[in-house]
Design a protein around this nucleic acid. Structure first.
Length: 435
DNA sequence: TATCCACAGGAAATCAGGGTGT
DNA sequence: ACACCCTGATTTCCTGTGGATA
């Protein structure tokens, strides 16, 4: 937004809020469409619920359940099912209720932090600092705590996205430590439940860990469009007032999400976003158009959030790619050029230093993995190896993000010296051939 | 056919910045 | 003050790649 438009913006916000308050109300309970919501009934997961219930039921009699793993793609209800079973189990536990500690390994990703997280969750405060203590000290403290505070009870440790730590060198170490917790405990008993999106994640595990963690597993199959439709219908009844959703909306959300490996989370997101768009545009009903708009917005929002969340250095790498493809006539962007332009930019941005080629190479791979660019490895014979890089994200979206960045805004129209000088790293004929 | 280029990318080391206990 | 710990980012060192070229 331009600065001289501030008055208009303020007026517009006031009007927006007034309209919003006077406009139609569609949501009865928005929370019902959140991934964290645990419904009364989980459609099409009876089999999985039964398996988890039978594996954990012995905790009700004070016995220790075996460790096990849950496999399945994102949005197949792994976490929701476990939370669902844990709630039910708690209802039937009489004297000593089981403890459930959830650890999302994509956020709590180091051995130290996992131990600290378990400890801090039990004592309900941040007693263990985020860093500083030796790991074995925390391990001993945790053992003492488990035996004293969680005595005679079962403590379920749910490691969500366990694959995030399993492929790290030290991941084996923490998983091994956790699997042998019981050997060092006198009164408390622990049960490890791993949740993974990847079936092959065990390949990187130590055989000792596999033997105590991976023998038993439950596979969550993906939902088909009909099943997704059932889930959406259940949730929509809770989330929206009656007769808000037009016919065909739920099947459309279900079909779109079914295309993405039957991701229920995505289906719920789509429906929620469609509802928000309908509400924002003062509509009394949600239509198929709102769903299509929702899909576009979700995709864009995800990319924008990802880029904004990247470290500044990664943003500079992305800006280098943007500038080369914008100012070079044939738009050809190769890794060597990105390195050079990145160096140019960092020399002009205070507080930022240039990086090595190796590091830039990693950033290019990360951008590629995130779907922001494509990078195709190409050998140009005598002229060595390189990567042909292309932007996937619309340039308008990128420009919007760069405009908002204090450090990058001024480079939006910067023509790299390398391009001003028409510098070509590789032989002109080969260069032409690559196009 | 050996050589060579300009990288890719794995593994280990290093550094800075956060912390600890004594 | 000091030795030590943990983490994430980055550097250093290294081997591999593959097609044009001499």
């Amino acid at each position: 937004m331009l600065t001289n438009d501030k008055e208009y913006e303020k007026f517009s916000i006031d009007r927006f809020y007034k309209n919003y308050l006077n406009g139609p109300r569609l949501f009865k309970s928005r929370d019902a469409l959140e991934p964290s919501y645990i419904p009364e009934d989980l459609p099409h997961r009876d089999n999985e619920i039964e398996q988890i219930a039978s594996k954990t039921a012995c905790a009700l009699r004070g016995e220790t359940p075996s460790n096990f793993l849950c496999y399945g793609m994102t949005g197949t209800g792994k976490t929701a099912t476990i939370r669902f079973v844990s709630q039910k189990l708690a209802n039937y536990a009489s004297d000593c209720k089981p403890w459930w500690i959830y650890i999302n390994c994509s956020i709590v990703s180091t051995p130290y932090r996992i131990l600290a997280h378990i400890y801090n969750t039990i004592v309900k405060k941040d007693e263990i600092p985020p860093t500083g203590l030796p790991k074995d000290v925390i391990f001993k403290k945790l053992l003492g705590l488990l035996d004293n505070k969680v005595d005679n009870s079962i403590c379920f440790l749910v490691l969500d996205e366990i694959d995030m730590i399993a492929d790290k060198k030290n991941g084996n170490e923490i998983l091994y430590d956790l699997t042998r917790l019981n050997e060092n405990l006198d009164f408390c008993r622990t049960c490890l439940i791993g949740i993974s999106n990847k079936l092959n994640f065990k390949e990187n595990l130590d055989p000792r860990v596999i033997s105590s963690l991976g023998e038993d597993h439950i596979t969550f199959l993906t939902y088909d469009a009909k099943e997704l439709g059932d889930i959406l219908n259940e949730r929509a009844k809770i989330a929206f007032y009656d007769d808000i959703i037009k016919e065909g909306v739920i099947p459309l959300c279900a079909a779109l999400a079914a295309k993405e490996h039957g991701d229920a989370r995505k289906a719920l997101q789509l429906l929620r976003k469609a509802g928000e768009i309908a509400e924002r545009t003062q509509n009394k009903h949600i239509t198929g158009d709102h769903v299509k708009k929702a899909q576009d917005e979700l995709e864009r929002d995800h990319t924008i959030d990802y880029i904004k969340g990247m470290p500044l250095q990664a943003q500079v790498v992305l800006m280098s790619i943007y500038l080369i493809s914008r100012f070079r006539q044939n738009k050809l962007t190769i890794s060597g050029d990105v390195y050079e332009v990145h160096g140019e930019l960092t020399s002009k941005i205070p507080g930022l230093r240039s990086l090595t080629r190796r590091r830039i190479s990693d950033y290019i791979n990360e951008l590629c993995l995130a779907g922001i660019i494509t990078a195709q490895k190409k050998s140009v014979g005598f002229h060595g190896n390189t990567k042909i890089i292309k932007l996937v994200v619309e340039t308008k979206v990128l420009e919007g993000i760069f405009k908002e960045s204090d450090k990058l805004r001024s480079f939006l129209n910067y023509k790299p010296i390398m391009i001003q000088n028409n510098k070509v790293r590789i032989n002109k004929d080969v260069f032409r051939k690559l196009n």
